[in-house]
Nucleic acid binder design. Structure first.
Length: 698
RNA sequence: GGCGGAGUAGCUCAGUUGGUUAGAGCACCGGCUUCAUAAGCCGGGUGUCACCGGUUCAAGUCCGGUCUCCGCUACCA
C-alpha cells in the first residue's frame, strides 16, 4: 500500500494555488423582461454560476453581476396591451426572473436593471465619449409608421406580401417562403401587426455609430487579444471584418421605452446600446452597496472581465461592445465565453411539443441540482449546441449522482454518527491521495469551462471509491462491538472520499456541498479542503440527500409545458384537436376581395416529369402539363420532402400566371402549391378524383 | 456554394507530442451480496476508429481526397 495520509504530513496548498488572488468581474447576458426564464436560458446562467462558484472556491475575488434588459418596443407594446406602465411590467418581470434564478441556486452578487439611474448616467458617459471621438453620424431613413398606434415599426411588427416571390403575409425583414431579404418598406401591401392598419412611410432621423472607424482596432483585438475562441474569431473575420463595417443604427425615434438621447431630443438609444452598459451599471450598484470603487473592476488592468453569452448575440459583444468600451476607456473583455443552444430530444425546443420548459415548471417536477449536473456533463469550451435527452438525463442522474456519489455517503453514514471520524487517516490503498492529486486537473478543466471533462474525472474518482466500501464490509463490523475501531476507519475513509467529491462538485452542486458540510460539521468553503482529510470530529445523524428521478417525472413536465398553451375554444368541432400552432406561426393575412383572388390563376396540372437538380439544396425540377401541349417547367423547393419518382403522374395545383423567374438552374415558369413549415415538412395540395389538368381553381 | 464543427461499442463520449492487444460510463449478459444501501461488488466486449489513398518501422492520431450529419452564412423556389 502507499502512504497513509496524516494531517501533519499533508502538504499545505495555498488557497487556490497558482491562480490565487485574481480579481474577476463576470456577467451573463441580460434576460429580456418580456418573458419567463426557460431551461434554454438556464444553460447560460448555470454555466456562469458554476464558473463563478469555482473561482470563489479557489480563493479568487469574483463578482457576478447581471440585470434585466428592460427597454425596447416589445416592452412598450406589451405594457400597452396589458394596460399598465412599462415600469410596472419590468418590476414584476424582474421579480419573477430573480425567483427563477434563486430556484436554481444561481447566485448573483448583484442583479440590477437597465432601467436604472446608474445606467442612464453611464449611457450619457459612453455617448459623450463616442461623440468626442467623432463616431456618431446622423441621417434620415425611411421607416414605416403606424398611424393608429402612433409608433414607428420595427421590422418584425410589419407583415406583408413579399416583393420578390409574392408570398402573402411575410415578416418585415425577410421572406419565409423565398428567403429574400428586404426592407419593410419594399413590402407589398404592408400591415402593422400592432393595429392592423396600413403603415405610412415616414422619414425619420437616426443616429449611427461609424463602426468602420474602429475597424483596425477591432481586427487587432479579435485576432490577438485571446478573448475569443478561434472559431469565433474566424467567423467574424469572414463575415464582418472582410468588408467595410456598416454603420450601426443606435437610435430610435419616439415613442420608445428607453433613455432619451441628451443631445438629440425625441430620440432614444436603441436597446442594444444601453443593454451591455447595464453590465457596468449593475456593477456600480454593487460597488455602492459594498463600498467598492467601480474603476477597480472596470478600469483596472488587474481585473479580468468575463462575459458569458449565447452564440446568437456574438456580434453585439465582439464588435459593438468592445468598440464602445475602447472608446469610453473601460476594460475590454478578457474573455467572451460563447455557448450554443439547447435542444431537447434532438430537436429545437418548441411550445407545441412542450420542450420549451419554463424554469418554474421544471422546479415542480425535478431537483434543480439535476439540471445543473446534467448541463455540466454537457458543457465544454466549444460553441456547440447541447442536447437534453430525457432518458440520458435520468440515466446520468441516477447512476452518477445517486448511485455513485450520494450512495457512497449513504452506505456508511448511518454507522458513522456512532463512531465519529478517526484521529489518524487509515490505510485506504492510496485512494485519498490519488483523488487529492486529481484536484489540479479538475480545476484546470473548470477554469477552461470544460465542465464535461471535470465531471468525467470526478466520476472516475467516485467509481474508485465504492469498491473500497464493498470490500471492507462495514456491515459485518457493525455486528461485532470489538471491531468498532475498524468500523470507524472504514467510515473515515468513505466519508472523506465522499467529501472530496462534494468539494470538487461544489461549484455544480452547492446544495450537496452544504449537506456534506452539515454531516461532517465542517462547511465546504475552499477548494484546497480536498487536499487533507477531516479527522477526529463527530458525524451528525445521516439525512437523505437526493432522490432518484423517474423518466415519467420528466414526461409529466413536458406534458404540463405543452398544456400551458392556451386552449382554443372550438365548439362543435371539438372532436378535432388540431393544434393552433400553424396559425400562430403564420397569422391570417389581411382581408382581400374576390377581385384580388381572381388575379391568381390556379390550375390543375399533371406532373409529367420530375428530376433531381443535383447542385440544388432544396429544388426539384418538374415538368407540368396543363393538358394538350401546354407544358411548364417549374422548380419547386420540395427536394427534402418528395422523391421525383413518386410525383410523376400526380395531379397538383399550380400558380399558372406567375411571372417566369430565372433561377440558377434554369427558368421557373410557375409555382406548385404546397403547405407546411418547410424542409421535409412540405405537403403538396392534391386534387380529388375527376379533376383534369388545365381546369382552373375557383 | 462558402465558413466552422463532428463521425470511435447499442447509447453518451475519452483517446496527450504517431508507439504494445483501441478505452470509460451507461445499457446488456452471468455470478455474488443485500440484519449498510438510494444499491453495490466481481466477471464478460459487443469495434471495418465513416470511406479511399498517401507518409512512416509504426496511423484512431499526420497529409490528400470522398461521403454523411449538425450549425452559421449566401443563393433560391
Amino acid at each position: 500500500m502507499s502512504n497513509p495520509i496524516q494531517p501533519a504530513e499533508a502538504s499545505p496548498v495555498a488557497a487556490g494555488s497558482p491562480s490565487a488572488g485574481r480579481r474577476l468581474l463576470v456577467t451573463s447576458a441580460l434576460p429580456y423582461a418580456n418573458g419567463p426564464i426557460h431551461i434554454g436560458h438556464l444553460v447560460e446562467y448555470i454555466q456562469t454560476d458554476i464558473w463563478v462558484r469555482f473561482q470563489k472556491l479557489r480563493g479568487n475575488r469574483c463578482v457576478y453581476v447581471c440585470a434585466d434588459d428592460t427597454h425596447g418596443t416589445a416592452i412598450m407594446i406589451r405594457a400597452r396591451n396589458e394596460g399598465r406602465s412599462e415600469e410596472e411590467l419590468i418590476t414584476q418581470m424582474s421579480g419573477a426572473h430573480q425567483a427563477d434564478f434563486a430556484g436554481f441556486e444561481i447566485e448573483f452578487d448583484h442583479y440590477g436593471s437597465t432601467h436604472s439611474e446608474e445606467n442612464r448616467q453611464l449611457c450619457h458617459e459612453f455617448w459623450q465619449s463616442m461623440r468626442a471621438a467623432d463616431l456618431i453620424s446622423e441621417r434620415g431613413i425611411s421607416q414605416l409608421f403606424d398611424p393608429e398606434a402612433e409608433t414607428f415599426l420595427a421590422d418584425r411588427f410589419v407583415r406583408g406580401t413579399c416583393p420578390k416571390c409574392g408570398s402573402l403575409n411575410q415578416p418585415g425583414d425577410n421572406c419565409g417562403v423565398c428567403g429574400a431579404t428586404y426592407s419593410p418598406i419594399d413590402l407589398i401591401d404592408p400591415k402593422s401587426t400592432l393595429s392592423g392598419s396600413t403603415p405610412l412611410v415616414r422619414e425619420a432621423t437616426h443616429l449611427f455609430v461609424r463602426l468602420e472607424r474602429l475597424h483596425d482596432f477591432l481586427s487587432e483585438w479579435i485576432e490577438s487579444s485571446g478573448a475569443l475562441q478561434s472559431e469565433t474569431a474566424n467567423y467574424l473575420k469572414g463575415h464582418f471584418l472582410a468588408n467595410e463595417l456598416r454603420d450601426w443604427d443606435v437610435s430610435r425615434p419616439a415613442p420608445y421605452f428607453g433613455f432619451e438621447i441628451p443631445d438629440a431630443p425625441g430620440h432614444y438609444w436603441y436597446v442594444w446600446f444601453d443593454a451591455p452598459i447595464g453590465y457596468i451599471a449593475s456593477t456600480q450598484q454593487w460597488c455602492q452597496r459594498s463600498g467598492e470603487r467601480l474603476d477597480d473592476w472596470w478600469r483596472s488592468a488587474d481585473c479580468e472581465v468575463h462575459h458569458f453569452i449565447g452564440k446568437d448575440i456574438t456580434y453585439f459583444h465582439t464588435l459593438f461592445w468592445p468598440g464602445m468600451l475602447k472608446t469610453a476607456g473601460y476594460s475590454l473583455p478578457t474573455k467572451v465565453h460563447i455557448h450554443g443552444f439547447l435542444n431537447v430530444g434532438g430537436e429545437k425546443m418548441s411550445k407545441s411539443t412542450g420542450t420549451l420548459v419554463a424554469a418554474e415548471t421544471y422546479l415542480k417536477f425535478a431537483d434543480p441540482s439535476f439540471l445543473r449536473y446534467f448541463y455540466a456533463t454537457k458543457l465544454s469550451s466549444k460553441v456547440e449546441d447541447l442536447d437534453l435527452g430525457l432518458e440520458e438525463f435520468t440515466d446520468k442522474i441516477n447512476s452518477d449522482l445517486i448511485g455513485k456519489v450520494v450512495n457512497l455517503a449513504s452506505r456508511v453514514g448511518k454507522f458513522a454518527s456512532g463512531t465519529g471520524l478517526a484521529t489518524r487517516y487509515p490505510d485506504d490503498g492510496g485512494l485519498f491521495a490519488a483523488a487529492a492529486a486529481a484536484g489540479e486537473e479538475i480545476a484546470e478543466a473548470y477554469e477552461a469551462c470544460d465542465f464535461s471533462r471535470a465531471m468525467r474525472r470526478i466520476m472516475e474518482l467516485a467509481d474508485a471509491a465504492n469498491p473500497f466500501v464493498e470490500h471492507a464490509r462495514p456491515w459485518e463490523m457493525k455486528k461485532d462491538p470489538a471491531r468498532v475501531d475498524e468500523l470507524r476507519d472504514v467510515c473515515t475513509v468513505a466519508l472523506n472520499l465522499f467529501r472530496q467529491l462534494a468539494i470538487y462538485l461544489a461549484p455544480v452542486l452547492p446544495k450537496l456541498a452544504r449537506q456534506c458540510g452539515e454531516l461532517l460539521g465542517d462547511p465546504i468553503v475552499a477548494w484546497n479542503q480536498s487536499q487533507r482529510p477531516l479527522l477526529g470530529s463527530a458525524v451528525q445523524p445521516f439525512r437523505r440527500m437526493m432522490d432518484r428521478i423517474q423518466i415519467e417525472d420528466l414526461q409529466k413536465m413536458i406534458e404540463e409545458s405543452r398544456s400551458e398553451e392556451p386552449a382554443v375554444a372550438v365548439g362543435d368541432a371539438s372532436r378535432w384537436t388540431d393544434s393552433d400552432q400553424p396559425l400562430r406561426d403564420e397569422p391570417l393575412a389581411a382581408e382581400i376581395g374576390i377581385d384580388d383572388f381572381a388575379k391568381v390563376d390556379l390550375r390543375i396540372a399533371r406532373v409529367v416529369a420530375a428530376e433531381q437538380v443535383p447542385e440544388a439544396n432544396k429544388l426539384l425540377k418538374l415538368t407540368l402539363s396543363l393538358g394538350g401541349d401546354e407544358r411548364r417547367q417549374v422548380f419547386a423547393g420540395i427536394k427534402a420532402a418528395y422523391q421525383p419518382e413518386e410525383l410523376v403522374g400526380r395531379l397538383v395545383v399550380m400558380v399558372a400566371n406567375l411571372a417566369p423567374r430565372k433561377m440558377r438552374f434554369g427558368l421557373s415558369e410557375g409555382m406548385v402549391t404546397a403547405a407546411g413549415p418547410g424542409g421535409a415538412e412540405v405537403f403538396l395540395l392534391g386534387v380529388d378524383e375527376g379533376g383534369k389538368p388545365g381546369q382552373r381553381v375557383h
